[in-house]
């Protein structure tokens, strides 16, 4: 109201028409980038050693390009499956270990610390090879009474077998399962740190208010702390998922054949075509990561409820209204 009156009383001055500041440096840089981009596109289009038709259209006698042949698609499925399963293991373990790490109980938090220390210290490649060979330690892996042989000996029974179910170690701990465990357990350590940072970023007053309402610790964590911590947890987790897509190529050393890069490598070994196969692998990884980034966008949007830019914009608008003596939006109606 007051501003409008002022406007009518005083004529609005002419809008400023000043010469903007020039940024010649930016234009030079843009020109350089444009030339580099043109050179790159020129390379892609004119250099026939890329053998685009080999990648996209005809591979050997087939009608399909190398990207779309059955073994490669099989490998792609393996890569996606391995990413999903190892990330699920990693996230579940990460949440459990982060909660243990923040436990007031010293033993639990130390165990969590040792876990993170170990799995962050060992390179994933080493872990992958290690898990591929871990079945040397046992003949069979089973589920049942622990230390059954030792307990049996204590009571004078030789070879007490109290396993409900067991499987040959070399069948279970090899190939896909070994790779999945190596990646998943290692991921658990990284996720634990991410989740811990997320939980610690939440104002302790939140948990306090929830406790004061009579909520149990588990309920507080599930309904109040973790949903808010997700805002901090999701972006680095997106990073981890994308890193995991690429790290699945490490399981070729387990060895796992059910994996994208291994399959493409096999083809280049068989056909002696190296570069186009690498380009095909690169394109697949680009596609997977792009899809994941779209997913991350929606997940992030979901967990920023109550913080979103719309909320902040409305808040600003309201502040301005209050400052100008106007009524608060929507109230008193």
């Amino acid at each position: 109201m007051t501003t409008e009156q002022q406007e009518t009383e005083r004529a609005r001055p002419e809008p400023i028409k000043a010469v903007p500041v020039r940024h010649p440096g930016r234009w030079v840089l843009i020109a350089v980038l444009a030339i580099l981009a043109a050179m790159f596109i020129h390379l892609l289009v004119t250099n026939d050693r890329f053998r685009w038709s080999f990648i996209f259209l005809h591979y050997q006698d087939g009608k399909r390009g190398v990207m779309f042949t059955e073994p490669v698609l099989e490998g792609l499925r393996g890569t996606i499956l391995l990413t999903i399963t190892s990330m699920v293991i990693g996230i579940v373990l990460g949440v459990i270990i982060a909660i243990m790490r923040l436990s007031p109980n010293r033993i639990l938090s130390s165990v969590a610390w040792i876990y993170t220390w170990f799995f962050r210290a060992v390179p994933r490649l080493v872990l992958a090879v290690l898990f591929g060979n871990l079945n040397i330690l046992w003949d069979r892996i089973g589920f049942g009474l622990p230390f059954d042989h030792q307990i049996g000996k204590l009571f004078g029974i030789n070879d007490l077998n109290a396993q409900f179910y067991s499987i040959k170690a070399s069948d279970l701990l090899a190939g896909f399962v070994a790779g999945m465990l190596a990646l998943g357990l290692s991921e658990g350590a990284y996720m634990a740190e991410i989740v811990r940072a997320g939980i610690q970023s939440i104002d302790p007053g939140q948990a306090e208010a929830a406790h004061a309402l009579g909520m149990s610790r588990q309920l507080v964590l599930r309904r109040v702390v973790l949903p808010q911590a997700m805002r901090v947890i999701v972006p680095p987790t997106g990073n981890e998922v994308i890193a995991m897509v690429k790290d699945t190529s490490l399981v070729a050393f387990v060895p796992v054949t059910f994996e994208l890069f291994f399959q493409l490598n096999q083809i280049s070994a068989r056909t002696f075509v190296v570069l186009p196969v690498l380009v095909a692998a690169l394109i697949w990884y680009l596609i997977i990561c792009s899809v994941l980034m779209v997913g991350q966008f929606f997940v992030e949007r979901h967990f920023s409820r109550g913080y979103g830019s719309t909320g902040r914009a409305r808040q600003r608008l309201r502040d301005i209204e209050v400052e100008q003596g106007g009524r608060i939006t929507g109230e008193a109606s």
């Binding site: 007053g205 939140q206 306090e208 004061a212």
Partner: peptide, 13 residues
């Protein structure tokens, strides 16, 4: 026992 805090502590999400 209801409690009201200095910093409100509403659940922002």
């Amino acid at each position: 026992i209801g409690m009201v805090f200095q910093r409100f502590n509403l659940f922002p999400h």
